[in-house]
Design a protein around this nucleic acid. Structure first.
Lengths: 158, 158
DNA sequence: CGCTTCCCTAGTAAATCGATAGGAAAACTA
DNA sequence: TAGTTTTCCTATCGATTTACTAGGGAAGCG
């Protein structure tokens, strides 16, 4: 009864970020077709189309139809945080039981759970909010993040 | 199409932690009945029973049947991290598309996504792994966590 | 027009979420 | 030993979500 799942990043969010990275990696006013992104990243084409629609409605990408059409980023890649992409594709970064931490209320010995969830959220926000598409696409993560990822301990499973 | 959900803590994980906190708040060898915990925390009784079963199988609580029965923590409250409880109730703390970060493989401009997820996971682990049931139950969070939770910015939504 | 590519709506199988139901098995109590 | 209490186990359930697929309409271009 205690199996998979915990705090998960959905396929949709993962795909959205990867698609955005693909767009971030091409020269500034060039555009990519959904099919090309799908092939490059191994994402189901029609599923990706829906995700790109979300990114467009969220103002992160712009699209063009027709023969020379495709998608491109609406802003420079170094002004779009990974958090922006996840939020547009998947909603709030962190939630507890479906609601965002500030809406929760705890009683008795659980009262201090609220500040704890808030702290977790603040930390996730800090990382995903400061790392941009440009950072990831050029493989130059901020030192702070790089440091965390270099600790061999971080790569081990529980 | 871009609605709720992101990185979520499930009802089950939330309930598990709250139940464990209730147990942490009573004197050391006393025990609580599932019904009492359910009432104190407003958790559906039968649902909680299943969760307490997980905690028992995970070695975090011990149980006793019969008239004077109930549940108590298997170890002192200051040796059980919130992360322990979540993992036992809900599986790995952080996962991407159902699998744990080290099992992922990215190509092209998405290559540095892996270290990014690793960094996020390391950070979540750090917080939830160092805060114990005793810390939360006594409302004395570690300074580092307290600091994060005190920033007013952390309490605002996006 | 004809081709391409985005755009939109619907549907769908499978899993998960958040429970509920019913009773068997143990422990204590009288 | 009978009765009570409480945990323990299995099974089920409706709603929602997840990860896709299908099919066609609407732009844009040559």
């Amino acid at each position: 009864m205690a199996d998979n799942r915990g705090m998960r990043i959905s396929a949709k969010a993962d795909y959205a970020v990867r698609a955005a990275l693909e767009l971030a990696s091409v020269s500034d006013d060039a555009s990519l077709k959904a099919e090309a992104i799908a092939a490059a990243q191994g994402i189901p084409h029609k599923f990706l189309e829906g995700i790109l629609g979300d990114l467009r409605r969220g103002g992160l990408v712009v699209s063009q139809r027709g023969g020379k059409g495709g998608y491109r980023l609406a802003r420079p890649a170094d002004t779009i945080a990974i958090a922006d992409v996840i939020r547009v594709a998947d909603g709030p970064l962190v939630s507890v039981r479906g609601v965002r931490p500030p809406e929760l209320s705890y009683v008795g010995p659980a009262e201090s759970l609220l500040p704890l969830w808030i702290a977790v959220r603040a930390n996730v926000r800090k990382i995903l909010g400061e790392v941009t598409l440009a950072d990831v696409a050029t493989a130059e993560l901020p030192d702070e993040v790089q440091g965390l990822a270099e600790d061999p301990e971080a790569w081990t499973n529980p």
